[in-house]
Structure formats: structure tokens, C-alpha cells
Amino acid sequence: MTAHHSPPDRVRLGLLTSTHAVNDLYQGLVPALLPLMVLERGYNYTAVSGLMLAATGLSSVVQPLFGLYADKAPRGWMVPLGFLVAALGLVLAGMSGDSYIATWLAAALCGLGIAAYHPPATVAARAAGGGSQRAMSVFAVGGTIGASFAPFLASTVVGGGALNRSWLLALPALLMALLWVAATTGSRQRGKTPASARKIAQHATNDWRAFFLLCGVIVGWSIPYVTVLSMLSLYVTRELGGTPYMGAAALTTFTAAGAIGTLLGGWLADRWGRMPTIRLGYMLALPALGALALAPDAVWAWCCTGALGVAMFMPFSAQVTLAQDYLPRNPATASGITLGLAMSIGGMVSPLFGLLSDARGIRYTLTCILVVLAVSAALTLRMRNRGVSVPRGLASSS
């Protein structure tokens, strides 16, 4: 098998990374606005959970459908339309007043925009990066940066009972859309990579068995990730006696370490290959999670959290490109399933681990998700790398 590579287009990759930051800013703004809505509109926990389901659950389910649509033909317009629709939904949610139904529908619209963005943007980022894992990791970190900025933006713009100013939150999307139009209008390069990619896909075959094995690995990754993300602060403060500041610091460290791990994983995958990097990440995550479960105090837990974040995200960009190479005829669908549906399963089962924590304690829950992660790590040993098979003549001509 021979993989098709081309020189990276750094300008276009930078543009796509910026759009990812803006898109995931709105993904982060949804949970950031919920406490403000509780204070201003009196929503209870059930109402808040319903809004999160509308924004994230629906988004994860429909993302593969947008992937199928994007695979049929180049649809670059889905990238700006996605984050513009996400911004519109968020603004409407913030300005919908006392109507919960209107707020719920607006949150769902925001989720649809986020879902529409990811499959075509991920495929475009892979093409712009010329097949580089490091380029894909840079694109992924762009989303992390955008999401991490969301709480600050929400508190600054609409904090203190000012949800009526939510329209200001649309400005990042509008500015990014103008930049996108200015950068892509009349660009000759815009259609070249998708065209060659389509020619290659016509001569490639999908390996669904390998793809579903990868999906199983990602599900086994997402369950520990979501569980740690949702319970880390409580673990540090309630069970280890840490201050609220230490709980928040541990959570921030986990997110920042994840960004570092994503970049490190992309660099390692380019040097060592995808499979060694993926397996190394899972194997390093196991002792880090085990040490977190056994942490004697908050400082130890904080150190383990940093190591866990780096290790868990090392395989991230390699898994995305591997999924696309397993389904070369449907790369956007592969992105939609792996980034949307498979990863969302962790969120779906997290309430079960919440019940387990109430009954047995968070340490017991961390031990259980360590077993889940171990199964996922074992499955990586059965995975194999795959390049896209390209006829020699086509590879040289394209």
C-alpha cells in the first residue's frame, strides 16, 4: 500500500485551524451559558440537562449524516455555514426569554451547526496538511483553544444577568466568515486537493471491520475521558480534601495537558508512525489513571492529572487520520462517526458512573474506568496501520 502525500498548505491549514477555534468556541459556550440561564431564568437541573442533550446529544447523532452528505461531493461551504449556524443558535438561545421550548430549539440549532462543521473541516484539514499527523494535531488543538476561551467570553459579555446582550457572541463567527470569504474567493488551490482525493478514493476500498475496531477503541477512550472530566473537581475537593481552587486547577491542567498531548502525538506519529504512537498513548494512560485512583492527596492527583491528559490525547490526531484511511471512500463519514457518535457514547454512559460514584465513591469509579481503558488499550494491539492503496500511475499523475 502507498499513501498519497502532498506538501502542506500552511496558509489554508491556519485558516481551517482558526475556523475550528471559532466553531468549538460555540460548543464551549453552551455549557458556559447554562449557569447564567439558571440564575436569570430559574431553570432546574432537568431543564439544564435537556438543553445539553439538545446541543450535544443531537449533534453527535447527526454528525455522521453530515459526513455522508459531505462525502458525495466537495462542499467547502459547509465549513463557514456550520459555525455561522452554531452562532445563530447560541444567540437565539441567549435571547429567547422565558420560553424554554424556544431555548431548547435554539440549542438544538447550535448543535446542528457544530455537527455540520466537523466532517468537511476535518477532511479539508487533512488535505491541507498533506497527510501530516502534526498538521492534524494543530487543527485539533485549535478547537481546544476555542472551547477553553468560552467561559471567559460568556462571563465577560453576558455575565451578571445580561443574556439580552447575547447577540454580541455572534461577532467571532461573523468576523471568521468574512475572513473565510476573503481567503477563499478566487483561490485556485481550493479545488485541487479534493479532486485528487476523489480520484484516489475511486480506486480504494473501505475496511469496515478495521474501522469498527477503531470505533470500539475510541468508545473505550471516551468513557474514561468524560468520567474524569466530570468528576475530577469533586474528587480533588471532596475525597482528597483539596480547595475549590485546586479542583479547578486540576480540571484546567487536564485540558491544557490534552492540548500538549495532541501536539506531541502528532509529532511522534510523523516520526514513529501512527500505530506505535496510538499504543504508547494508551499504555502510558493506564498507570497515570491508576495513580490518580490511588492518589493520597490533592497535589498527587494534580500531577497525575497532567500526565493522564498528555497520555490520553497522544493518539488523538493519529486516530482521526487512521479512521479516514480505513474508509478512504467516505473520509467525512469516518470523521463524523469517530468524532461524533463514538466519542459521545462516553457522555451517554457517564450518568451510570455518576450513580456508581454516589453508591461506592469516586475512587471505585476511577478503578472501574481503568478497566475500561485497559480493554481499549488491549484492542489497539489488534489494530493495524493502513495507507490508501493507489495505482502507481494515478499516484504519479495526481
Rank of each mutant, 00 (worst) to 15 (best):
A257W: 00
A55Y: 06
S148F: 13
G393F: 04
T321P: 01
S99V: 10
L109N: 06
V61I: 15
L268G: 04
T367I: 12
P328V: 06
N206S: 10
A86G: 15
A73W: 09
T237C: 05
T237W: 07
Y364M: 05
G241V: 09
I260A: 15
Y117H: 15
G393I: 01
V157H: 00
T227F: 02
G191T: 11
W104G: 00
A73S: 14
D98T: 12
F83D: 08
S59C: 10
G242V: 13
S230E: 02
M312G: 00
P74F: 14
R386W: 00
G241C: 12
A127T: 04
V62F: 04
C215S: 11
A295H: 06
L175K: 07
T252V: 09
G242W: 10
S187H: 08
D325Q: 14
Y282A: 12
A288M: 12
L356V: 02
G82A: 00
G306C: 07
T205K: 11
L39S: 14
P80Q: 07
V299T: 14
F152L: 15
N385H: 12
A102Q: 01
T19G: 11
A140S: 15
G354S: 07
E239D: 14
A173K: 11
A288C: 10
G393K: 02
L232Y: 11
L51H: 12
A332R: 08
G67Y: 10
K72N: 06
Q63M: 14
S49H: 06
Y117P: 09
T365W: 09
S60E: 07
I260R: 03
P8C: 02
R329C: 11
A47R: 14
S96M: 04
L153A: 13
W104M: 08
T122E: 03
V219N: 02
A73H: 13
S317E: 07
T333I: 07
N44V: 13
L327N: 00
W180Y: 15
L171P: 05
V375R: 04
L105Y: 05
A21G: 15
G143P: 11
A257F: 04
Y235H: 06
R238M: 12
G67Q: 11
T205G: 02
L34S: 03
W180P: 05
L153P: 03
M136Y: 06
A285I: 08
S398V: 15
G129E: 05
A106G: 07
G159M: 02
M383I: 08
L366D: 10
M231N: 13
Y282E: 01
V371C: 10
A301M: 05
S335D: 04
R188G: 14
S317L: 10
L175W: 07
A93H: 08
L105S: 06
T321R: 01
R165Y: 11
A307Y: 05
A250C: 14
A332I: 11
T252Y: 00
M314R: 04
P287E: 10
P328C: 05
W221A: 08
R165K: 13
G57K: 05
R41M: 10
G346W: 00
